[in-house]
Nucleic acid binder design. Structure first.
Lengths: 229, 229
DNA sequence: GCAACGCTTCGATCATGATCGAAATGTTCA
DNA sequence: TGAACATTTCGATCATGATCGAAGCGTTGC
């Protein structure tokens, strides 16, 4: 019985190295990174990272772009991000009975981006607040932005039609691996994250995927969204 | 920077072995299998399979159930199936320009079940036919069953409310890794597959995940659905 | 209780691939 | 053209874990 199992194993083997897993995890914020930065997060020497990166590109998980003497790596397609999202969700399931993940970096747990939307305590808090205000319904598999939610986002200055890529789902849940609860994803989630970056409510930390919540951000998330953060 | 990367790598390593990947792939039809059957599909001796199965259970990817002298293994949660689905989708992406997958078993490519719904040429053909008849809209990320579609399924004797687990999404796309195109999943997809099994349109092959399309099935899929199969 | 059967544990062997130092390549800028 | 820098290639070493034979365990049925 020939199945896709060999390819599945091959793909998994590619992710199974801690260095490569670190690289992929780092790229989950959707932006491109240099080989040096990726070597740093993987905790290996540049030549080792180069070897890992070559494998990831060869297998089409990453694509590379030359920018002067540097090379910028990013996830090849959103499909890869979606796959990693699913794997992280399962990876976060402790075989042991549920408890918080003390081994996750506090900054990551607090606030980060997940490809293009907010995650961590912040992402879940904003999502919860929107649900409580009736802006949002979120089931494990599906999500819906209510009329109230559309109005709310519009009043914030978000044009949901703008991201053009209307083929993307407006509103979907994404299981937060650190909080073990869904947060808002899809076009609406991306729009909220964009807004937060634009208004300087959050700032990307120079290294890593975590973001810093500014003072203005705390005020905005609490005041405008009603988030308990 | 502590992230979930180590857990991600550990999880991937678990799937990275061809034997274990074969076991997981085999269990993607959602049913439980004996250790012997899983050893067979993995192509290893029973004692090696036992070792693999122990790791998968320990890491909570599988759960085991004793049935007399046998042990029945199944996927621990639908989350695992969803993760594997995502991985298979990426695994099926050839780094090389697109072409059919000659290395996939013809029976698997023809018709199989994907957790609880139809996949392969059959799954895609049924989905396409339903789309062409206006029963279904299917975007890469989302799906919608139209009023016509609901009526169509009702006339077939499908009660979409019956599966009780109404938290599940009614209609969603699932990227078919052998056809590289979406097929119908969600509660509607599961209902169609259930119906097909009940009416003996398809039969599960004793080994493997592929299903056999019966003569009556060909008539039904062509006549009732209008599928080009 | 005993035999049959399915499955697991133990122990020894063997193969794959991750690692880094050293050196080469390639790009930019002066 | 040459210097500076980012990245890759090469080569040798080393560690992890997959494998199977043999033996042990546990359940069922006579």
């Amino acid at each position: 019985m020939q199945t896709i199992a060999p390819e599945l194993a091959e793909l998994a083997a590619l992710i199974a190295d801690p260095g490569r897993a670190g690289i992929l995890s780092r790229l989950m914020d959707g932006r491109a990174q240099t080989a040096s930065e990726l070597a740093r997060v993987a905790g290996v020497t540049p030549q080792t990272a180069s070897w890992h990166l070559a494998r990831l590109v060869e297998r089409a998980l990453l694509k590379v772009e030359r920018r002067g003497p540097r090379r910028l790596y990013r996830l090849a397609t959103p499909l890869v991000a979606q796959m990693l999202e699913g794997m992280m969700t399962v990876a976060a399931i402790d075989p042991q009975p549920s408890r918080p993940h003390p081994w996750i970096d506090a900054e990551m747990r607090r606030a980060r981006t997940c490809y293009d939307h907010l995650a961590g305590e912040l992402g879940v808090a904003v999502t919860d607040a929107m649900r409580e205000h009736g802006h949002l319904h979120l089931d494990p598999e599906a999500g819906e932005l209510t009329a109230s939610g559309r109005a709310f986002l519009r009043d914030l200055g978000i044009d949901l039609r703008s991201p053009a890529r209307s083929r993307r789902l407006l509103c979907r849940p994404c299981l937060d691996w650190s909080e073990r609860r869904p947060h808002l994803a899809g076009r609406a989630g991306a729009a909220v994250a964009d807004l937060a970056l634009q208004r300087d409510w959050i700032r990307r930390r120079p290294q890593g995927r975590s973001v810093e919540i500014t003072e203005a951000g705390l005020v905005a998330f609490r005041g405008l969204f009603g988030a308990r953060i």
